[in-house]
Lab assay of single mutants.
Amino acid sequence: VTTYKLVINGKTLKGETTTKAVDAETAEKAFKQYANDNGVDGVWTYDDATKTFTVTEMV
């Protein structure tokens, strides 16, 4: 189990959260659900070296 981080660069919501998951795919599903629940829709990137997902909403 690995800890993954999500950085949110939203128009109205900004911040970070973490989740523990067995792999990046599982973490991504959890983060996308979290973003969807919070009304964040944007471009996703993932950095495997730092285990960090970033979602950026276009203005």
Rank of each mutant, 00 (worst) to 15 (best):
L13R: 06
Y4I: 01
D23N: 11
T12S: 14
V22I: 14
E28Q: 15
T12Y: 14
D23F: 04
D37I: 11
Y46G: 00
Y4P: 00
E25F: 15
G10W: 06
T3C: 10
K20L: 15
N38A: 10
G39E: 06
K5E: 03
K29Q: 08
Y46T: 01
V7M: 07
V7Q: 07
A35R: 01
A21R: 03
G42R: 01
T56P: 01
T19N: 04
T2H: 15
G42K: 01
E28H: 15
F53T: 00
T3Y: 09
E16T: 14
D47T: 05
N9Y: 15
D48N: 08
K5A: 04
E57V: 07
F31V: 02
Q33M: 12
V22W: 09
T54M: 07
A35D: 01
M58Q: 13
E16M: 11
F53C: 01
L13N: 07
D37L: 11
V22C: 09
K5Q: 05
A35Y: 03
V7D: 03
V59Y: 13
A49P: 08
Q33R: 12
K5N: 06
E16Q: 13
D47M: 04
V59S: 12
G42L: 02
T52N: 02
D41M: 11
L6V: 03
F53A: 01
D41P: 04
T45G: 06
T17W: 15
D37E: 12
Y34N: 02
T52I: 08
V59R: 09
T52V: 07
V7F: 09
T50Y: 05
Q33P: 02
D47Q: 05
K20H: 14
A24W: 14
T54S: 06
A35K: 01
D47W: 03
T50S: 10
A21D: 03
K14G: 06
E25Y: 14
V7G: 02
Y46D: 00
K20A: 14
L6G: 01
A30P: 02
D48Y: 07
A24V: 12
I8S: 03
K11T: 10
T3K: 11
K29H: 08
E16C: 15
A24P: 11
K11P: 09
V40F: 11
T52C: 05
T17P: 03
I8D: 01
K51C: 06
F53K: 00
K32P: 00
V55T: 02
V55H: 01
N36E: 11
G42W: 05
F31D: 00
G42Y: 03
N36F: 14
D48T: 08
A21S: 06
Q33S: 15
L13Y: 12
G39P: 02
N36G: 09
K11S: 09
Y34I: 06
W44P: 00
F53S: 00
L13V: 12
T18Q: 09
T19V: 12
K51L: 11
K32Y: 05
Y34C: 03
T54K: 05
D41S: 15
T18H: 10
F31H: 01
T19R: 06
V55S: 02
Y4A: 00
L13S: 06
D48C: 05
E25K: 13
T56Y: 10
K32E: 03
K20Y: 15
K5C: 06
E28S: 08
W44L: 03
D41G: 10
K14C: 09
W44C: 02
L13M: 13
G15Y: 15
V1L: 09
D41N: 09
E57S: 07
D48A: 12
V43E: 10
T18C: 09
K29S: 08
T52S: 04
Y4L: 00
L13E: 06
T12K: 10
V7A: 04
M58N: 14
V40L: 10
G15C: 12
T17G: 04
G10T: 15
G42F: 03
G39Q: 08
K5L: 07
T45D: 07
G42A: 02
D48M: 11
G15R: 14
E25T: 11
L13C: 12
K29R: 13
Y46M: 02
D41H: 14
V40C: 04
V22D: 10
T54N: 04
G15E: 10
K51N: 07
D47S: 05
Y46I: 01
L6E: 00
A21T: 05
K29W: 09
E57N: 05
N36C: 12
K20M: 15
M58W: 11
D47Y: 04
T54F: 08
T12A: 10
V22M: 10
T50L: 07
V1K: 08
G15W: 15
W44M: 03
T18N: 06
W44S: 01
E25H: 13
N9I: 14
T45C: 07
L6S: 01
D47G: 02
V43F: 11
T45W: 06
I8W: 09
D23H: 04
A35L: 09
L13T: 08
V22P: 09
T17K: 12
N9Q: 10
K14V: 09
K14D: 05
T26F: 07
K5H: 10
A24I: 12
Y4W: 07
I8H: 03
Q33H: 07
K11G: 07
N36L: 13
K29M: 10
L13Q: 08
N9R: 12
A27C: 02
Y46F: 05
K32T: 04
T19K: 05
V7E: 04
T2Q: 13
V59I: 11
K20I: 15
D47H: 06
G15M: 15
D23V: 03
W44E: 00
T52G: 02
V55F: 03
T52M: 04
V40S: 02
W44H: 01
I8G: 02
D41K: 13
K32R: 15
V22Y: 10
K29T: 10
T17F: 14
F31P: 00
L6C: 08
T45R: 06
T3R: 05
A21E: 04
A30S: 08
D37V: 13
G15T: 15
T2C: 11
D47C: 08
A21P: 01
K14W: 12
A30V: 14
I8F: 09
N36S: 11
V40P: 02
T45M: 11
M58K: 10
E28M: 15
V59C: 13
A27E: 00
T52L: 04
D41A: 13
A49C: 07
T56R: 05
